[in-house]
């Protein structure tokens, strides 16, 4: 990912900042300029919950070159307690132990790096809550 693109998304990647429509209350993650529910352009910034549950997942066994040291690893859709669904890697788990509905928590992790000389990109991954 290009550095400016990554930099622009830091509030979402690091702090889970979302936009809540002040007109109808709908939450957008990532934020939008216009609410697709009520056409309002007025939003307040909120931080999404770090807790949620697994809606569905799949296991990546043949990984892209950047992720071979982590294979096999699950990627899933997680529904946060705010009702927002996000796509994220699920870390710190044995893929065979994962179950739909399992409670998870978002942790701050390295997502990728631009080779050994490039920047390290950070963000969130879901981790099962015991």
């Amino acid at each position: 990912m290009a550095i400016p693109n990554y930099w622009r998304s830091i509030p979402q990647r690091y702090r889970y900042e979302a936009a809540k429509c002040t007109g109808c209350g709908k939450i957008f993650f990532p934020p939008r300029i216009v609410c697709d529910e009520c056409a309002s352009r007025s939003f307040e910034t909120i931080n999404l919950s770090r807790y949620g549950k697994i809606v569905t997942f799949t296991v990546i066994r043949i990984a892209p070159s950047q992720f071979v040291d982590q294979a096999p690893y699950p990627i899933g859709i997680v529904e946060l307690n705010d009702g927002i669904k996000i796509c994220t890697q699920i870390a710190d788990c044995n893929p065979d132990d994962l179950k739909i509905g399992m409670p998870v928590r978002l942790e701050f992790r390295k997502i990728s790096q631009d080779g050994t000389p490039g920047i390290i990109q950070y963000g969130y991954k879901a981790v099962p809550v015991k």
């Binding site: 710190d92 701050f108 992790r109 390290i120």
Partner: peptide, 16 residues
């Protein structure tokens, strides 16, 4: 540490 953990990621979690 896992491959996706480093001094920065652990610092964030400890500080949270």
């Amino acid at each position: 540490p896992s491959p996706d953990q480093d001094t920065i990621t652990m610092s964030v979690e400890a500080l949270r």
